[in-house]
């Protein structure tokens, strides 16, 4: 008994403090070096691009030009247009993401409670899973109009499908022995759902959220391509029709930055959710 306790305690202590310090010491110089390489690679890419344009190796009207992109970017920020477009796309993506992911997860989990319903709609789920969900966008635009609501709807519907399928799959993957144990304890179906199925599906749901923030942005931007008055998708599409390649790039880089920021937030939330 004593020996078990001591080894146990040693393990627990080891986790708490000892390995933390050397890991941190090793990690920092590594990331620092990698960061320098990353900056060099990106800067090098833009430098070669700029040089290639100025030397006349590739035509500016097809590829755009980094210095021109920077000009577009600065202009977009000073006149506020790019900021407004970014804000619109952010709202569409985030609201669509939240609605779709939350309701989708709830729907997927609820299917565990009703195996009959799950069996009935399984073919529909399989078909929806295989469908490039963005193909639904034109329909949704027709239903919801050209305002921000239709883009929210596109993002919400796509993320709903992804979250529902993932959370349903998660609920099916929960170890059946847990379910049997709770049954043997006399638990009701709803108790099993609450105590085992929901928490057991959380890792799946969290992964779906991570995917969904990307899908929400795709939904919002494609929705804007189809029909919109504002937003980064509209900005890119409009600049494209004018052959303003620098403007297109400015919109793309704004989207990339937005994607990084949103992904960072979801990543944080994901870490809070996941049990290890």
């Amino acid at each position: 008994m004593t020996s078990v306790e001591t080894t146990g305690r040693a393990v627990a202590d080891g986790r708490g403090s000892a390995p933390a310090r050397p890991a941190a010491r090793r990690l920092l110089p590594g990331t620092g070096r990698i960061f320098i390489y990353q900056v060099l690679v990106i800067a090098g890419f833009f430098a070669i691009w700029e040089v290639a344009i100025r030397a006349g190796w590739i035509p500016v009207y097809i590829y755009g030009q980094p210095s021109g992109v920077v000009r577009e970017f600065v202009k977009g920020i000073t006149d506020g247009k790019l900021l407004i477009d970014t804000w619109v796309t952010t709202q569409e993506s985030v609201i669509g993401f939240l609605i779709g992911s939350l309701f989708g997860s709830a729907a997927g989990l609820a299917l565990w409670l009703s195996p009959t319903t799950a069996a009935v709609i399984r073919p529909i789920m399989v078909a929806l899973n295989g469908l490039p969900k963005i193909a639904l966008a034109p329909l949704i635009i027709v239903w919801f109009g050209i305002g921000i609501e239709s883009k929210i709807a596109v993002a919400a519907i796509i993320t709903f499908i992804v979250a529902m399928i993932a959370s349903y799959a998660g609920s099916q993957e929960v170890d059946n022995d847990y379910v049997r144990m709770l049954k043997a304890l006399g638990a009701t179906r709803f108790q099993i759902f609450r105590m085992v199925i929901v928490p057991g599906s959380v890792p799946w749901i969290a992964s779906a959220f991570r995917l969904n923030i990307g899908f929400a942005m795709i939904g919002a931007v494609v929705g804007e391509y189809i029909s919109a008055e504002q937003g980064l998708g509209q900005h890119i599409y409009y600049a494209g029709t004018l052959y303003n390649l620098n403007g297109v790039w400015a919109g793309i880089f704004a989207l990339m930055i937005l994607a990084l920021v949103l992904d960072w937030f979801v990543g944080r939330a994901e870490r809070l959710l996941k049990w290890r």
Binding site: D177, Y178, Q191
Partner: peptide
């Protein structure tokens, strides 16, 4: 199954998202 029998298997079946205390109380919670 009404909880008249408690069982313990080769697999501990501890719920990984519950602390030791909350794993011990699960039968009472039910």
């Amino acid at each position: 199954a009404t909880g008249h029998v408690g069982y313990m298997l080769q697999k501990d079946l501890l719920l990984p998202w519950r602390t030791v205390r909350d794993n011990v109380t699960i039968g009472l919670e039910v």
